[in-house]
Design a protein around this nucleic acid. Structure first.
Length: 476
RNA sequence: UCCCCUGUAGCUCAGCUGGCAGAGCAAGUGGCUGUUAACCACUGGGUCCGGUGUUCGAACCACCGCGGGGGAGCCA
């Protein structure tokens, strides 16, 4: 593409409010476009705070009352309320009052889109997250959801940066899968069959007539697919939507969420732990550096102490313990658990939180779980009882990462598939990876929204994705 | 799916033992001040989630339904 193309684009884009607020105010003429957050009137001036989403801060625009002798401007100003979209031209000047470094001394105001106060649902006051959840199409206009959106954007970009800088290739694994046995949870079925007609007929379903000629589903994980690319490109990752049809009603589960799944060839569990640790620390450091204003907001309004705890996470090596040690820790804990911990038990939420909050006081990597409670593809350890699995647990909600070294020995993997009553035919292509040029390899899954919960201090996962999908919730 | 909590003005909530529907914020009007969660005064604003029942009388008690939240399980 030519330079001229970019110049043209560039010329049509006004500086954002973020850019304006970073400028030295010397009376230069500026034009801003955005949405009114609040308007305050005095006899001498009218103050309009405008936000365009480029940053948390609004820009204050001051209309001197002398301008109001213009009746057209006066009536337009009267119709400008919280939520309205406006274009304001004026001079960027140092602010004589406290609260902001610069402000716009207004020359012209144009009301673009009205937001009548008697109907616009957002007021210039704090709203509960529950209320805003019912207004998913408007909530991004609030400080909190604007900040979440910006952090989400930065984290998505940082994920690519991290992997690209470390020699990982981005692989697009399929959204639709015909494999019904990935073992990561209930799946949404995908079909073009006429279900109404089928229900009326009462007959059995002939999947041969379905789109793919067999049952198909939305993916619950890209891992098995990405392992194939791993065995050629060495270091790969996926980052895409993932679907679970579990009837989960919690603050940390979604039916549709975004997952990051790196996979490394010639890598053992210890490499996996190192990658996961560095990855989280990198992302946290980027958030602190590049989303400082938004993080400060979360720290002040959403989760006091957030910034300090993130700073600590970015600098401190993660604690590491084996499952066996973790259970020992839990057994000797001076706490009444609802579920009594014992070797062989699945770690419950309360156990995970105890380990990360009480024992460690930060993120902790737990490894080498009993094979019975983990997936078939995880590498079996020498002891015959455990697998080379790792979960990263963090304070406030527990598991953020789940991963493992994969079983790369054909005979061991085949035996495990048989033991669990799974089908070797279904996994034949997966087993091919062990038949031909197999390597020790490792990877993990990170729930993107869980990362965002962690970084923003938000507590409900439905508030860190634009349009949450959960049981009985698919509005907007 | 299970357990607990909850539903009253646009929002957040109070409403005692069943006895005339309340506050703050928001909105409108006026005033005032380089204001900034602006301030002061006044005004308007209700299907008390819906249904059924108990009662002289129900926002309040009982039952059914619907919505919202939190916790658990499944997991990322």
């Amino acid at each position: 593409m030519s330079d001229a193309f970019f110049r043209e684009i560039h010329m049509t884009l006004l500086p954002t409010i973020k850019q304006l607020l970073a400028m030295e105010p010397i009376g230069q003429e500026v034009t801003i476009r955005g949405w009114v957050r609040t308007k305050r009137e005095t006899k001498q001036s009218t103050f309009i705070e405008v936000n365009d989403g480029s940053c948390l801060s609004n820009i204050q625009c001051v209309v001197e009352s002398a301008l109001l002798e213009n009746e057209a401007l006066k009536s337009m100003l009267a119709r400008i309320a919280t939520g309205a979209s406006v274009e304001i031209a004026g001079k960027l000047v140092p602010s004589p009052a406290k609260g902001q470094k610069a402000e716009v001394s207004v020359i012209r105001v144009k009301l673009i889109g009205e937001a009548p106060a008697d109907r616009y649902p957002l007021q210039k006051k704090a709203h509960s997250l529950e209320f805003l959840r019912e207004l998913a199409h408007l909530r991004v206009r609030t400080n909190t959801f604007g900040a979440v959106a910006r952090v989400r954007n930065r984290m998505a970009f940082a994920i690519h940066q991290f992997f690209q800088e470390h020699g990982f290739y981005y692989v697009h694994t399929p959204i639709i899968t015909a494999s019904d046995a990935e073992g990561a949870g209930a799946m949404f079925q995908v079909t073009t069959l006429d279900l109404d007609a089928l229900a009326k007929s009462g007959g059995p379903v002939d999947y041969d007539k379905d789109f793919f000629g067999k049952r198909a589903y939305l993916t619950v994980s890209g891992q098995l697919n990405v392992e194939t690319y791993c065995q050629a490109l060495s270091r790969v990752y996926t980052f895409g939507p993932t679907f679970r049809a579990e009837n989960s009603n919690t603050t940390r589960h979604l039916a549709e969420f975004w997952m990051i799944e790196p996979e490394m060839a010639f890598a053992e569990l210890s490499d996996n732990i190192a990658l996961a640790t560095e990855f989280i620390q990198y992302l946290v450091a980027v958030a602190l550096k590049d989303c400082a204003e938004d993080i400060a907001f979360f720290d002040e309004r959403i989760q006091p102490g957030l910034r300090e705890s993130l700073e600590k996470v970015a600098q401190t090596p993660f604690a590491h313990m084996t499952y066996t040690d973790a259970v020992r820790e839990l057994e000797s804990a001076n706490t009444q658990f609802e579920f009594k911990p014992y070797w062989g038990c699945d770690l419950q939420s309360e156990h995970e939180k105890y380990l990360t909050e009480k024992v460690v006081g930060g993120p902790v990597v737990v490894t080498d779980y009993p094979k019975e409670i983990k997936a078939f593809y995880m590498k079996q350890n020498e002891d015959g009882k455990t697998v080379a699995a790792m979960d990263v647990l963090v304070p406030r909600f527990g598991e953020i990462i789940g991963g493992s070294e994969r079983e790369w020995r054909l005979d061991v993997l085949e035996k495990r598939i048989e033991e669990l009553g799974l089908s070797k035919e279904v996994y034949s292509w997966y087993l091919d990876l062990r038949r031909f040029g197999s390597t020790p390899h490792s990877g993990f899954g990170l729930g993107f929204e869980r990362l965002l919960l962690y970084v923003t201090g938000m507590t409900n996962i439905r508030d860190v994705i634009p349009f949450p999908r959960a049981p009985r919730q698919a509005e907007f």
